[in-house]
Design a protein around this nucleic acid. Structure first.
Length: 555
DNA sequence: GCCGTTTTCGGCCCGACTGTTTTCAGTCG
């Protein structure tokens, strides 16, 4: 068992402890331990036997004993007991927005609710308002939350879809497949996945499938029993190219590309494009009919690719709310071949995230300088993710801001401002001479909450006027700014930074997956500042500051 | 359950927001 898997178990244990009415502090201790554990990229056996776990703050004797039980028996007896005690539907109640462990427990014990369906029924019949602590208003809020929950069911963020893919891949390879390839929405770079499509390449045209898969056509199998519907297509190696092509594009694209004729079995996708007399169309663009026409006219741009990325920008460490240390994050970026990394921990107003006071900013700089002198092969820049305060100002005085190599300015509070006020606030931050990059411009969390209400056109225009970079934050919950705005912004002269907003070394690796989504937006290497060399990037930031200062003077 | 002592108990990230209450509790980031 990997530490990451053990972390998931502890997280669930923490939730059940709270639902069962045990000390919320105990639950929090388990939850914090889960966080710490998730950052360890090693096996649980190794972490326990080396004594590394007991060294970690927040993991003491009790939790080490629990983890030892988990690795010996594959489970935690007390957790199993709680699973028997708390109905599974009550655990699911916490998936609703605005329902935490306390409210779920209250709904269960005071109102007798043990599933989301029962809760919905009870709200409609106004039986919840009769319970202590609830009113007609809370019934309406709960119904809203249930509607939102329902609208996001059967969909996954990309990292969760990849996790499911990894599980299936291992099973299918064990079951005799020669190779497994992700196709469909995942390969096209869709930001959320409502159908997971895999091609299983097998010599014999058969593979041992998990029990929940049933036939759904010629050599096609599907399952609807997991978090998202899944389909698996079987193909022999000599027809793998055709199978992958068919499993990747959407229906409109396939009809336009093939003209409705059946494709011969071909081993490689390149053979399929040659057969169709079409240039290679990147998987991320294979939707709709227009792209086929563009391809025929030779209008497919050279899209950004992972090899183009030279700078890793916007990374958190244990100095604020990151799970891995500065050293670990730097070494992980170097291992992936990055030439420079820009550390951007939270600023002082982000107290919940351990934001840096001015003193700690200076301490962190000293540590970065010390590390830079020890580590070769990667440059370390000192940036900050500065909160944009309610009035649009940044979170430090100018003399402190001026010391950073890069300032990512982001909204983390006051999400509910009216549109005009929210927009004005962000425009003010864009005009700030020290704002290098506008972080996650809408604050959306995919399948969790919408972004704050802002005028994106106005933000793009002001970014263009001031020369401020807009972030494409590729944290799999964010993927913000939405790729649908990318071309328009670029046509106005805006540049993007493709940033992982990584809070762990795993998050750093997710950067590459996010590039798939950037390709949907047709970002090219010249649109993206991370493709610059270190010297180019430093010169870019210096020129940007000068330009912005001049704009301020003339204003 | 963890931590750090004022060293074996008492407090535990903090501010905004919302909704139910008249002074606070729960949720969220």
């Amino acid at each position: 068992m990997r530490c990451r898997d053990a972390a998931h178990v502890l997280e669930r244990y923490a939730l059940l402890l709270e639902l069962a009415g045990e000390s919320p502090f105990k639950a929090r201790a388990y939850s914090a331990a889960a966080d710490a554990l998730a950052a360890l990229d090693r096996s649980l056996d190794d972490a326990l036997d080396s004594g590394a776990l007991s060294q970690i703050r927040g993991i003491g004797e009790g939790i080490v004993a629990t983890l030892d039980e988990l690795r010996r028996t594959g489970t935690i007896a007390h957790l199993a007991e709680l699973e028997g005690q708390v109905p599974p539907g009550v655990v699911r109640l916490t998936e609703l927005r605005g329902v935490g462990a306390k409210k779920a427990r209250q709904l269960w014990l005071d109102c007798g609710i043990t599933s989301i369906e029962q809760l919905e029924q009870a709200c409609r019949e106004h039986r919840i308002a009769a319970c202590k602590g609830f009113s007609a208003k809370s019934e309406a809020a709960l119904l809203d939350a249930i509607a939102f929950w329902r609208s996001t069911r059967g969909q996954l963020q990309r990292h969760k879809a990849w996790r499911l893919y990894d599980e299936l891949r291992a099973t299918l390879l064990d079951g005799g497949a020669r190779d497994i390839v992700a196709a469909g929405q995942l390969r096209r770079g869709c930001e959320t996945i409502d159908l997971l499509t895999l091609v299983a390449i097998t010599e014999s045209n058969t593979v041992a499938l998990p029990e929940d898969f049933a036939p759904a056509g010629t050599r096609r199998y599907s399952s609807i029993t997991r978090d998202v519907p899944i389909e698996i297509l079987l193909a022999t190696p000599d027809e793998a190219g055709t199978a992958l092509f068919v499993a990747t594009g959407d229906d409109e694209f396939l009809a336009a590309a093939t003209g409705g004729s059946a494709l011969p079995p071909l081993p490689d996708e390149a053979d399929v494009f040659a057969h169709l007399h079409l240039p290679d169309i990147p998987a991320e663009l294979r939707e709709g009919t227009a792209i086929v026409e563009r391809a025929r006219r030779g209008e497919i741009p050279r899209l950004i690719a992972r090899e183009d990325m030279r700078g890793m920008i916007h990374v958190h460490t244990t100095w604020s709310d990151g799970k891995n240390t500065l050293d670990e994050m730097v070494l992980a970026a170097r291992e992936l071949g990055f030439e420079y990394i820009v550390i951007c921990d939270h600023s002082q107003s982000a107290a919940y995230a351990g934001g840096l006071t001015i003193d700690r900013v200076h301490q962190q700089r000293a540590e970065i300088d010390a590390l830079a002198s020890r580590v070769s092969g990667i440059a370390i820049l000192h940036g900050i993710e500065s909160d944009i305060l309610a009035d649009g100002s940044l979170d430090y005085p100018d003399d402190v801001l001026a010391e950073f190599d890069v300032v990512v300015a982001s909204v983390h509070s006051h999400f509910a401002l009216p549109r005009a006020e929210q927009t004005a606030r962000i425009l003010r931050a864009l005009a700030n001479p020290f704002t290098t990059i506008l972080g996650h411009p809408t604050g959306r969390l995919l399948l969790r909450r919408d972004g704050y209400d802002v005028d994106i056109e106005a933000i793009i225009a002001e970014a263009a006027r001031t020369g401020t970079v807009i972030e494409f934050n590729v944290n799999p919950y964010r993927l913000d700014l939405d790729w649908r705005y990318h071309r328009r912004a670029c046509s106005e002269g805006v540049r993007f930074a493709i940033d992982p907003d990584a809070h762990s070394t795993d998050g750093i690796r997710e950067l590459f997956d996010g590039i798939s989504v950037a390709r949907r937006g047709e970002l090219t290497p010249t649109d993206v500042v991370n493709t610059m060399s270190l010297e180019q990037f430093r010169a870019f930031v210096a020129a940007q500051r000068e330009r912005k200062q001049n704009l301020q003077v003339s204003a």
